[in-house]
Design a protein around this nucleic acid. Structure first.
Length: 726
DNA sequence: GAGCACTGC
């Protein structure tokens, strides 16, 4: 027994009245018999704190217990809570492990971690052999990492099946996904062994009743309807002083709604409760988010206008009324165009229940749905899981690292679109992270009696890229920086690109913000702007007040600094040398390094054709885009001919963000896999520029191409993605 | 000359 257990003599502080204790014996028995147990525990059941302890206490399960959470704060606070209950220190018997913060020790047997962290562990040890039990908590949220972990634990279970340390899996979920999970873990070959069949256990929760009200007719304008509803609730519920939580879709909407509500609040009768309006969204600086947690002053009622951050990430006490617009802003990805979209759409039924539940945390509540019941019934039952909505190159890189070569055969609980997988493999091949053995070669191997699996293979570069907690292109940029002698700068740029923009431009102080930002602005590359901002931040000793005065987001810069530190610590395993090169005042190596790593994100200016604005055509997707007005290059005159960009986003238009001007010569020099000098092509009796351009992937000749080709002496080499090879 | 939901390594 460790010293942690000895301290238990002081008496533990576990809340024995929680419903989960009634199920302790049943749970432990089922975990002993079955390899997989699905626990359906409603909110307030105590499942996340108690079930891991039940399992850790039973020596029959041996070894260590891992509990995953989709969010850092949850992992940390659960570990602290459990340690407190057991009167031990965090980092002893009970610990947590999240990015930048490992609070575990040799004695730790119960480890709370983020799902992303366990996935990192799986990349080093795909059977997770240090654990005897893995609990996937909040599984219904279907985060990208949890979804991948489903496949990881299923494979690990199969591999460890016959050993003396089988892997036990507990899936904890709050809703109706039991059938999906049960089917998924059911063994395909019926062994007759109970261990191979999953079992479900239900645990009651502690949730107060929530009365539902639906709109009687469908609303033209949900914003207007939300404001009217808030005022109605406020005036009709005089005796109930509970706060109101309104679900909206985004910052703009929340800010304008807040203004309108405040205006209306002025017109309330003098004897009525006052209204205190609190906006809440992730981009709101931390000190402004605090207002949400303070209780409303006497004689007033709080109205929180929130994004879906209030669905799961932030719990606000005092809420008794929920107003649900039925709308949400969410990301989607179309592999065919390579375009990620952020758009407003209807929520799912499950999300509607989640929102309603927020009214019944502390007492009976009411939920006002601003849509009709028949419209609710038409909503999709479940939200589309993240894995089906995002670009997958990082996921594929992770799968390959875990030894999954046929990524389309991976046991996904729900498979992503095949196109998205192909697109991801294509991108990794183009980056040089992955090589695809030709069919001929793999067939020859087979006939030799070799049993090498088919599918793409990680290259040395790919292995290094996978080790970094960055998206593949940023990882390549950092690795390549060694050869360009600009690693110091690349570290900062990679860290800054992996956090949100640090420039803070509030609506009511746009001019001041813009003029404050001007001193950092580069007209050559937004990457250099980021370097300038980060440099100034360090010079100001990373001071929060300084950030505020200069319209910069402290939390973002602080995080970028942590990321940079983490990357520095990882460099020795990823680079050849330990001495970090610096480009000093010369931007050229940085820009050349960008060309060499972002060769799939290059765009060329289109000739003016009367339409307003300067437009660019992306080379990889052949899309017509513009430089985003927030870029330093948007106002440059003349606009650059060639640019490399970090991101292609679709908002009101298609925009390039994170843009840098580059020299055309560099394309041939540093991205030869995609660009070849026409001179070379012609020397081999190649095509003219125009024909060559038209020969690119997914490219049809257009009128513009001829005009464009006349000015271009770079040719896109036909580049065939290994579409059927993985 | 425009607005980006939310997580995570």
């Amino acid at each position: 027994m460790g010293s942690g257990d000895a301290k238990m003599s002081g008496g533990e502080r576990r809340p024995r009245e929680l419903p989960v204790f009634a199920a302790e014996e049943l749970l432990v028995r089922e975990c002993a018999r079955h390899g997989t147990v699905i626990v359906v525990g409603e909110t307030g059941s105590g499942k996340s704190t108690q079930i891991p302890q039940f399992l850790m206490e039973r020596r029959t399960f041996g070894g260590r217990v891992a509990v995953t959470q989709p969010r850092r704060v949850a992992a940390v606070s659960l570990a602290k809570r459990v340690a407190w209950e057991r009167r031990t220190k965090v980092g002893g018997l009970v610990g947590y492990n999240v990015r930048f913060d490992d609070c575990t020790g040799k004695k730790t047997r119960l480890r709370y971690l983020t799902d992303g962290m366990l996935l990192r562990e799986a990349m080093l040890d795909s059977t997770l052999k240090r654990y005897s039990v893995v609990l996937l908590d909040e599984a219904h949220e279907r985060s990208l990492s949890t979804d991948l972990l489903f496949g990881v634990v299923k494979r690990a279970q199969q591999e460890r099946r016959a050993t003396n340390m089988p892997l036990r899996v507990v899936v904890m979920s709050a809703t109706l996904d039991v059938q999906l999970f049960m089917r998924y873990f059911s063994s395909s070959d019926k062994t007759g062994d109970a261990f191979d069949e999953p079992v479900a256990v239900h645990i009651r929760g502690r949730q107060f009743p929530v009365e539902l009200r639906y709109a009687t007719e469908s609303q033209q304008d949900y914003l207007d309807a939300a404001i009217v509803t808030v005022l109605q609730v406020h005036l009709s519920e005089r005796e109930n002083k509970g706060d109101v939580l309104v679900f909206l879709t985004g910052q703009e909407e929340i800010e304008s709604c807040a203004e309108l509500l405040e205006e209306k609040a002025q017109l309330l009768p003098p004897n009525a409760l006052k209204l205190q309006v609190c906006p809440l969204f992730a981009a709101l600086p931390a000190h402004k988010q605090l207002a949400v947690f303070a209780p409303a002053p006497p004689g007033s009622r709080k109205v929180v206008l929130a994004t879906n951050i209030a669905e799961t990430s932030i719990t606000i006490s005092g809420v008794r009324f929920v107003v649900d617009t039925g709308m949400v802003k969410a990301k989607s990805y179309a592999a065919s165009t390579g375009l990620e979209l952020l758009r407003v759409g209807p929520i799912s039924q499950e999300q509607a229940w989640q929102r309603a539940g927020r009214a019944g945390r502390e007492g009976p509540g009411k939920c006002f749905r601003l849509y009709r019941e028949q419209d609710f019934l038409k909503l999709r039952q479940r939200s589309v899981p993240e894995i089906k909505r995002v670009e997958l190159s990082q996921v594929v890189l992770q799968l390959l690292t875990m030894g999954v070569r046929q990524v389309d055969k991976f046991p996904f609980i729900e498979a992503p679109p095949t196109d998205a997988l192909r697109q991801a493999v294509f991108q990794l091949v183009a980056l040089g992270a992955v090589s695809v053995p030709s069919r001929h070669a793999s067939a020859a191997k087979k006939s030799d009696g070799g049993d090498a699996p088919q599918g793409p293979e990680l290259t040395e570069l790919g292995r290094r890229m996978a080790a970094l907690p960055l998206e593949p292109m940023h990882a390549k940029f950092l690795i390549e920086s060694e050869r360009f002698g600009c690693t110091e700068e690349a570290l900062t740029i990679a860290a800054m690109l992996s956090v949100e923009s640090p420039l803070f431009t509030p609506r009511n102080a746009r001019r001041e913000a813009n003029s404050a930002h001007r001193r950092y602005l580069s007209f050559e590359a937004d990457h250099l702007t980021l370097l300038n901002v980060f440099g100034a931040f360090l010079e100001a000793k990373a001071d929060a007040k300084w950030c505020q005065a200069n319209f910069l987001k402290f939390s973002t810069l602080h995080k970028a600094r942590k990321v940079r530190q983490q990357l520095v610590g990882m460099l020795s395993t990823v680079l050849e040398t330990s001495a970090l090169g610096s480009a000093k005042a010369d931007s050229t190596p940085i820009l050349q390094c960008l060309v060499s790593s972002f060769s799939l994100r290059i765009a060329q200016r289109l000739p003016p054709d009367g339409k307003p604005g300067v437009r660019y055509k992306t080379f990889a997707e052949s899309l017509e885009t513009r430089i985003h007005p927030s870029s330093g290059l948007a106002r440059r005159d003349p606009p650059p001919e060639w640019v490399v960009y970090n991101e292609l986003v679709m908002t009101s238009k298609k925009y390039l963000k994170g843009v840098a001007a580059i020299d055309q010569k560099w394309l041939v020099q540093f991205a030869p896999a995609l660009f070849q000098a026409q001179a070379q092509a012609q020397a081999r009796g190649g095509k003219t520029g125009g024909e060559a351009l038209a020969a690119g992937p997914k490219r049809k000749p257009k009128e513009n191409d001829a005009a464009q080709a006349a000015r271009v002496d770079v040719r896109l080499t036909p580049f065939h993605p290994p579409l059927n090879e993985f």
